[in-house]
Amino acid sequence: MLQVHEAFIAHALAYFQRDERIVGLACAGSFITKTMDEFSDIDFVVAVEPDRYEQVMAERFGMVEHLGTLLSAFTGDHVGEPRVLICLYDNPLLHVDVKFVSLDDIAHRVENFSILWERSGRISAKLKEEPAKFPLPDLQWIEERFWVWIHYGATKIGRGEIFETIEFISFLRQSVIGPLILQKEGKQPKGVRKIEYDAPKYLDRLKATVASYDKGSCYSAIKMLIELYKELREVHKFESSRYNTQAEKAAVAYLDDVAKKYR
């Protein structure tokens, strides 16, 4: 961990310790794995007394101003986590996420964060109530949608909506292929986060899913996504897995027919 991060964490720790409404402070993300570098952000988890939680939430924008030279702060609604304030600080320029969690809810977590400080072991006691559980891809949910998505991508190529097609390809890589690869490699399936380092043997084929502004390039990228998906679903399948082979054949045939029209 760099001195910049250490200094910021130390200052935040001193600030939250002075507030009797705060039960403890923890760090998540790369702090846990000791892989923080100069490009890392800081992910704080602030445990709050349950009966003071609403009060703290009402004051949280003011609270994060005390942590440093705050340039900007907004809630994490866009990532489905309104409890988080996403902050940018200056001197030095640093991205910091601060999640305020009621002590009653802190056991519901996706990873075992590192506790920096707590009052009377109360966070540790709560965490024993249930294990951390990172949400894994639902293969059946994906299979029921994948071939409809492929047909959608084909129609965008056919109409010449290349920007939309490129965004669609990115969606499949981020939401389906990346998580399935990372899960296979025993990593948390966080989209394509650090996939270059965690799954290097897939790098060449993943590069082939990055399309340029060209119909042929988009077609080739989608075909590689299909190849990867079919391989990965075999890895992750379970006894009750059901494949929609009719939809698969129809969608792939349609994609190929669209491609023939501009070749």
Rank of each mutant, 00 (worst) to 15 (best):
residue 105 D to N: 14
residue 141 W to T: 07
residue 242 R to S: 14
residue 205 R to T: 07
residue 156 K to P: 03
residue 139 L to Q: 12
residue 151 H to G: 03
residue 262 Y to Q: 05
residue 16 F to M: 04
residue 212 S to Q: 11
residue 39 F to Y: 11
residue 4 V to N: 07
residue 33 T to R: 12
residue 111 E to T: 10
residue 150 I to S: 03
residue 107 A to G: 14
residue 113 F to W: 10
residue 212 S to C: 06
residue 260 K to C: 01
residue 254 Y to E: 07
residue 66 H to L: 06
residue 174 Q to E: 14
residue 119 R to E: 06
residue 236 H to S: 01
residue 193 R to Y: 15
residue 122 R to I: 03
residue 167 E to I: 05
residue 112 N to C: 11
residue 107 A to N: 12
residue 97 D to P: 10
residue 22 I to R: 02
residue 121 G to P: 05
residue 55 Q to T: 11
residue 62 G to P: 04
residue 144 E to I: 00
residue 212 S to R: 10
residue 112 N to S: 06
residue 68 G to W: 03
residue 252 V to E: 07
residue 228 L to C: 03
residue 42 I to R: 08
residue 131 P to L: 15
residue 162 I to C: 03
residue 203 L to T: 12
residue 192 V to L: 14
residue 11 H to F: 12
residue 154 A to I: 03
residue 177 I to R: 01
residue 222 I to A: 04
residue 175 S to V: 02
residue 59 E to I: 07
residue 136 L to A: 06
residue 164 E to F: 14
residue 228 L to D: 01
residue 173 R to G: 01
residue 211 A to K: 02
residue 140 Q to L: 11
residue 208 A to P: 01
residue 53 Y to D: 04
residue 256 D to G: 00
residue 101 V to R: 04
residue 228 L to K: 03
residue 24 G to P: 05
residue 85 L to F: 10
residue 223 K to C: 15
residue 37 D to A: 05
residue 113 F to P: 00
residue 158 G to L: 03
residue 137 P to M: 14
residue 156 K to I: 04
residue 36 M to S: 01
residue 154 A to S: 07
residue 73 A to I: 05
residue 70 L to P: 01
residue 224 M to H: 06
residue 187 K to D: 08
residue 187 K to I: 00
residue 216 G to M: 12
residue 87 C to K: 02
residue 117 W to P: 01
